[in-house]
Structures are given as structure tokens and as C-alpha cells.
Design a protein around this nucleic acid. Structure first.
Lengths: 188, 188
DNA sequence: CCAGTTTTCTAGCATCGCTAGGATTGCTAG
DNA sequence: CTAGCAATCCTAGCGATGCTAGAAAACTGG
């Protein structure tokens, strides 16, 4: 019976290696470079093995990577909670800059992951909760949940537009300061 | 000589038809469905004709569509200028909702188009100028340009996250109201 | 050692963006 | 009017993609 356990362990380990290889390759050369053939070569197996782990194919692998990303982002945001809005905003932007491909998988690609619904994974809700924690004190009479959505949208917009070279690079620090200024004040 | 002119006219007309067909197909079935073969079939020519118009291939066609989009968005924003921040914000969001594929081409795909640079097309700068016009009065001591970048990021984030089903649908109106509340107040 | 099950690989399909080379068309000069 | 030239267009094909069916291999329990 232990053999069966070992085989199962090897299998899940291999699944992890697939996602890890996909993430590495994506960060290095972008998601377009993450092909099933290259992925198979990296884990030293043939293509169909990927589909035994992720029946959904490449999309499912990206989704798995995205879920890892949500967990990591939640940790980063929680660590910055004491630093308030500024700390959380900076942590969010830093995360997106450090792992751009992963961020893409989480928010731009992988459209099957839905937020704000019953079947939304817990790790995804955790991120929203972290943002809510720092926004709630400054909400005043405004709805904290809605304000958090707007705050989140601002951070997401900053990240994506900045990466697409659509914002002036020299204003990066200034933008973050203005975000804090506009969202940090209590509205009543 | 008039024959030559007519041929040139037919040619540019055909170029327009290519972009128009691409836009229609993209809005109907998404950019993934816009293949060079389907595009060629729609304009009733063979594939290589596309490349004589757009040597850059599919990317160049998407870029051409994006440039049309920038022009149209600038018009929509200018028309809403008198309605202030709320009007412009609503016009922006409405545009993105009405032409989602075009919006994608403008901001998510087509990464070769850069903003805030010397070689940035005039139509793209026009959009920023329109946003700046309504933000400037409320900037106070804050830098108008930087504040406009943040405002724009918020709108962009709202649009993209909302479309990815990542925000709760029932809060749509509330979010826009909060954007106006947070950006409409003069900061000094 | 031998069946039977599970796992893995080889080979291939349809489709993608893109391009080379030949065929067809239209223009021009004699 | 026609021969030759130039521009235009299409057929056919290349390499690569995601994905899958069916054969081969390995491991299992008796």
C-alpha cells in the first residue's frame, strides 16, 4: 500500500513541477513562450502527461499558476497591513512588478476565475479582505466594499497601464502618493 | 492618370474594409476568432493581400483598429467634457462597454503603441488631454498630470476588472459615484 | 511467471501566422 | 493591335500551436 502512496506523492509532485516550470518560463519569456511542448520537455515527460494532470490543458495550468499567485499576493498584503493604505498599495504594486507574468495570469488571462461569487476560491477572497481591512477605516459614510473595489481598480489600472508603457515612468512614485492622498482621507 | 488614382482609391478602401472586418469580427467573437484566413474570406481576397496592406500582419491590423478606437474615444470624451468628471468618467466606461474588443486592442493588446513619448500618435495624446481638462480644476496643489494618470488608471481598472467578472455587478453605479466623490473634490 | 490495469509515449489532426514563387491581370510602348 | 513589362494576386506550403487517439511500456496483484 505504501507503494500506492508513493506513486500518488510522485504524481502530485510532478503536478507542482509543471506549474513551477510554467511560471518560470512565463516570467522569463512571457506566456506565449509557454507551449505544451516546451513544458513537457522541461519536466522531461511527453505532452499528454500534462493533460492527465490538467485536463483543461494550457488554460488549466495557467489557472493553477494564478491560484498560487493569489495565495502569495494575499500573504504580501497581509504583511503590509500594519503599514496602512500606503503600505498595502506599495505591496500590491511591488508584487505586480516582481512577478508580471503571474499577475497577468491572475487578472488579465485566466478569465474563468470569477470573483465576488459563491464558487470563488477562498484565496481570492482573502486578497479582497486584505484591501478592505485598510480601506474600511477611511470609508466614512461611503460603502467600504464598493470603495475597496474602486481602490483595487486604481491599483490594477496603475499596474497594467504602467507595464504597457502607457504612463510616464518618472511619475511612478508620484502616482502612488496621489493614490494614498485621494483614498487615505476619511470621507464623511 | 485617373486610372492610377482610382486604383489607389480602391486600395485604401480595401484597407479600410480589412480593419472594419477585423473590428466587427472581434466584437462578435473576440480577437482570437480574428484569423487571417477568416479576414481574407470576409473581404473576399486571399491571405497575402492582408500583408500587402499591413506588412506587420495581424498585429498591425489590430494596431490600426486601436488607432481608430483612440480617435473615437477622444470624440466621446470631448462631447462629455461639459459634464465634468462624472460625465467624462461615464463616457469612458460606456465606451469600453460598448466596444470591448476595441478597448482591448487599444489598451491590453497592441503593446507596440506607447504613450507619453515623442512618437506617440496625436489621437492618443488627445485622450489624455480630455481627461486632463476635467481633472485640472480639482487638482489643487497636486500635479494635474500625475492626478490625471491616476484618474485614468482608476477608470481603466474599473473597466478591465468589471469585464473579467471580478467586481460585483450590482455595485457598478456605486463605484462610479465613488470615483467622482474621491476625485471630484478639490485637494489643497 | 502471468494476466490485467495503469501509465506513458509515438504519431497525427486541425488550425494558426506567415511567405515564397508562379499565374494572372492590367498598363505601356512600339 | 500587339508584344513586353510591371504590378497584382493566388496557390501551395512551412513551421509551430493545442490537443488527442491508439499503441507501447511499466507496474500491479495473484
Amino acid at each position: 500500500m505504501t507503494q500506492r502512496q508513493r506513486r500518488a506523492r510522485d504524481r502530485t509532485e510532478r503536478g507542482r513541477r509543471i506549474v513551477a516550470a510554467a511560471r518560470e518560463l512565463a516570467e522569463a519569456e512571457g506566456w506565449d513562450a509557454v507551449t505544451t511542448r516546451r513544458l513537457a520537455a522541461l519536466i522531461e515527460y511527453s505532452q499528454p502527461v500534462l493533460y492527465s494532470h490538467f485536463p483543461g490543458g494550457k488554460d488549466a495550468i495557467m489557472t493553477a499558476a494564478a491560484l498560487e499567485g493569489f495565495a502569495e499576493l494575499a500573504v504580501a498584503l497581509a504583511a503590509a497591513r500594519d503599514a496602512g493604505i500606503e503600505g498595502v498599495a506599495r505591496a500590491y504594486v511591488d508584487f505586480a512588478e516582481a512577478k508580471p507574468a503571474l499577475y497577468d495570469a491572475m487578472f488579465t488571462l485566466a478569465s474563468e476565475l470569477r470573483f465576488a461569487q459563491d464558487d470563488t476560491p477562498e484565496v481570492m477572497k482573502a486578497n479582497f479582505t486584505e484591501l478592505l481591512a485598510v480601506i474600511e477605516p477611511v470609508a466614512g459614510k461611503q460603502d467600504p466594499g464598493v470603495l475597496t473595489e474602486v481602490f483595487w481598480s486604481t491599483l490594477h489600472g496603475l499596474v497594467t497601464l504602467d507595464r504597457g508603457r502607457r504612463l510616464s515612468p518618472e511619475n511612478r512614485a508620484g502616482r502612488l502618493a496621489l493614490v494614498v492622498a485621494r483614498f487615505g482621507a476619511r470621507a464623511d
